[in-house]
Simulated assay, not measured.
Amino acid sequence: MSARPFLLGLTGSIGMGKSTTARMFAEAGVPVWDADAAVRRLYAKGGAAVPAIAALCPDAVQDDEVDRGALKAWIAEDRTALARIEAAVHPLVARDRAAFVAAHADAPLLLLDIPLLFETGSEGGLDAVLVVTAPPAQQRERVLARPGMTEAQFETILAKQTPDTEKRRRADYVIETRNLEQTRAEVQALMAEIKQRVADA
């Protein structure tokens, strides 16, 4: 057995079934770190990112927590805003991830759920990357079923993400999430493969 956990990064474009797949790993007993949840913690009342955001954009902090609506408005009007926010927040997210890994040092496998894994260069330090995918028509159907989602919003989000074909090319493992039964079976098979890979190391 490895002296440290096997770190499996999970990513996939919007509507590809990433959250559902992460939940399947969690239900199988694998500790899961969620990058989006980490950002929410950092932005919450008393969160580590609150002073940094307040220094960049005082209007984006209300009642000692980050107002994400105000943050989005600032990003929309200032082309330098996003890069400045990322420079302040990404190190804090990395610290949160490192703390999670340290806290689960005895686990054989950890899943790190990182929506923008390739976009943010977060693959460093991972043992493998799993990309979830689905046919484009199924992806579109899933996303447009979300409350308040429009075609224009969907296209804008897609334009900011690494294309699915590129993600799959760069992945160590790919799971196609056409239906729950098949996805769960592939998750179980992958866990068994990684367990064997760790045992053989």
Rank of each mutant, 00 (worst) to 15 (best):
A3G: 15
A3C: 09
R4C: 01
L7I: 08
L7Q: 08
L7R: 13
L8M: 02
L8P: 06
G9Q: 06
T11R: 06
G12W: 03
G12T: 10
S13E: 02
S13W: 00
G15H: 02
M16W: 12
G17S: 09
T20K: 09
T20P: 00
T20G: 08
T21W: 06
M24S: 08
F25S: 10
E27A: 15
E27Y: 04
G29H: 10
G29P: 12
V30M: 02
P31F: 01
D34C: 14
D34E: 13
A37I: 11
R40Y: 04
Y43D: 05
Y43Q: 08
Y43G: 07
K45N: 07
A48T: 00
A49L: 09
P51Y: 05
P51A: 03
A54F: 12
A54W: 12
A54R: 15
A55R: 14
C57N: 09
C57H: 11
D59T: 13
A60V: 10
A60R: 05
V61H: 04
Q62N: 03
D64N: 14
V66F: 02
R68H: 05
K72W: 00
A73E: 10
A73N: 04
W74K: 00
W74C: 02
I75N: 02
A76V: 10
A76Q: 13
A76C: 02
E77V: 12
E77C: 11
D78T: 10
D78H: 14
T80I: 00
T80G: 01
A81M: 05
A81T: 04
L82T: 14
A83V: 09
E86T: 09
A99G: 06
F100L: 07
V101E: 01
A102P: 04
A102L: 01
P108V: 02
L111E: 01
L112C: 09
L112K: 06
I114F: 01
P115T: 06
L116K: 09
L117K: 04
E119A: 08
S122I: 01
E123M: 07
G125V: 11
L126R: 08
L130P: 07
L130W: 02
V131N: 11
A134I: 12
A137R: 15
Q139G: 10
Q139N: 12
R140C: 13
E141I: 08
L144T: 11
A145T: 11
R146T: 03
R146K: 13
P147A: 13
E151M: 14
Q153R: 15
F154R: 10
T156E: 15
I157T: 14
I157C: 12
K160P: 09
P163Y: 00
T165A: 15
E166Y: 00
R170I: 03
D172F: 03
Y173Q: 05
V174H: 06
T177E: 04
N179D: 15
N179R: 14
E181D: 15
T183L: 09
R184T: 07
R184V: 05
R184M: 03
A185Q: 15
A185D: 15
A189F: 07
M191Q: 14
A192K: 14
E193C: 07
I194W: 03
I194Y: 03
I194C: 04
K195T: 15
V198Y: 01
D200K: 12
D200W: 08
